[in-house]
Simulated scan of single mutants.
Amino acid sequence: MTLAILTVPGAALAAVTIKGRATGMPKLLNPVWNEAKDPKANRYTFREPSPTVRADVRALFGYAPKELCIAALGEKGAPLKTPRSIVIAGGRTSPVTIVVAEGQQIQFENQDPFPHKIYDVGNKGLQPVEIAAAKTRAWTPPGPGKYELRDQLAPSVRSWIVVEPRAVAVAYPDRQGNFAMEIEAGTYTLQGYFNGEPVGKAIAAIVKPGPDEQFIREPVVVGETGGPSAEAGK
């Protein structure tokens, strides 16, 4: 089983790996699908469901490794010294939602054989400048808040950048909900983000100086509402 691990800026040998699990992912629905299935959109035709396929595997819900961002929030985060990458390919971005500290530079990488024109809804600073095939574009969001990104040339591209001054580290769960991140000892809040919004129930995570690997006792439930609740484990 492969776990996505992202590191904390400036973390040294004092950093430990925390592991946890997110639940409730089948309740996360991507708005692009709901818009696409509207008959007035004339975009897709949904066939009648096959009686031989279980209903649970026919459900269209978010793909956690790209769409569900688990963020560790502390007192104050710091941007990475290197840009955070957002890849554009196959009509989507990877990741779809990303949570970064204030001042973090973003680098868009166009891996499609045709150009894209990424811009932010609401004209908060990202103008629709063309990114040619195999080229990149760097951009730093001007301040805290949610930035919804779209593409003038590909309507299926829709993603979000959340600038959260308290963001310390992030991770993306695998399809079973398992995630891991490297983080320094301290007290944090683990919060799920989907479609650019906090989702579910945040939990408190108390990370100790040792051991090097620590497990979170309570899952990050992304399909419910609530606030910080429980401690994270030894």
Rank of each mutant, 00 (worst) to 15 (best):
A180W: 02
P142T: 08
A78H: 13
A185T: 15
P155I: 13
K201Y: 06
T7V: 05
A204V: 12
E148W: 07
Y193C: 01
E102L: 08
L29Y: 11
P141M: 03
L6M: 10
Y172A: 01
W33G: 00
K234N: 05
L149G: 03
Q176D: 13
K135H: 14
A204F: 08
L80R: 15
V100H: 14
I70F: 04
R175I: 12
T225M: 05
Y147F: 15
I70G: 02
S159P: 03
F46C: 01
A185Q: 13
A101H: 10
T97D: 12
D120L: 11
Q152R: 15
K27R: 15
A15G: 10
V57G: 01
G210Q: 13
P115F: 06
E182A: 09
F179Q: 04
P51M: 05
A14C: 06
M25A: 11
A22T: 14
I183R: 04
A180M: 02
A134E: 14
K66C: 00
A64N: 08
I216Y: 00
A132S: 10
D151H: 05
V170G: 04
Q214W: 01
P142Y: 01
K40S: 15
V87C: 01
P113Q: 06
E182V: 01
P51W: 01
Q152Y: 00
S50C: 12
R166W: 10
A15Q: 07
V221F: 00
G77A: 04
T189S: 00
R217F: 02
R47T: 06
R43E: 09
G103E: 06
T82Q: 13
P83G: 04
R217M: 07
T52N: 12
A101R: 13
T2V: 04
N110S: 04
G177A: 07
A180Q: 02
A202D: 02
R54M: 02
F108T: 14
P49E: 05
S156G: 02
P65C: 03
A4F: 14
V222P: 06
E109R: 07
E102F: 03
P9R: 11
R175W: 12
G192R: 05
A12L: 08
W160Y: 15
K40R: 15
V96F: 08
V129T: 14
N30W: 13
V220I: 09
A185P: 06
E197G: 00
Q107G: 00
I18D: 00
T17I: 02
Q127F: 07
P144Q: 05
E164F: 08
S85L: 13
V8M: 14
T2E: 11
A230F: 09
Y188H: 04
A89F: 11
T52I: 14
P39W: 02
A138T: 13
A71S: 10
P128L: 09
L6S: 12
V96Q: 11
E148K: 07
Y119S: 08
R150G: 07
R92F: 07
A55T: 10
G223I: 03
P95C: 07
L153S: 11
Y193P: 01
G62H: 05
G10C: 07
T136N: 05
G20C: 03
S50I: 04
A154G: 00
A132R: 15
G196F: 15
P115W: 05
T189F: 01
P115T: 09
G143R: 02
G122R: 12
K135D: 09
V8A: 07
V222W: 08
S94L: 09
A12T: 09
Y172T: 00
E213W: 00
R166V: 10
P209E: 09
N30A: 01
E218A: 12
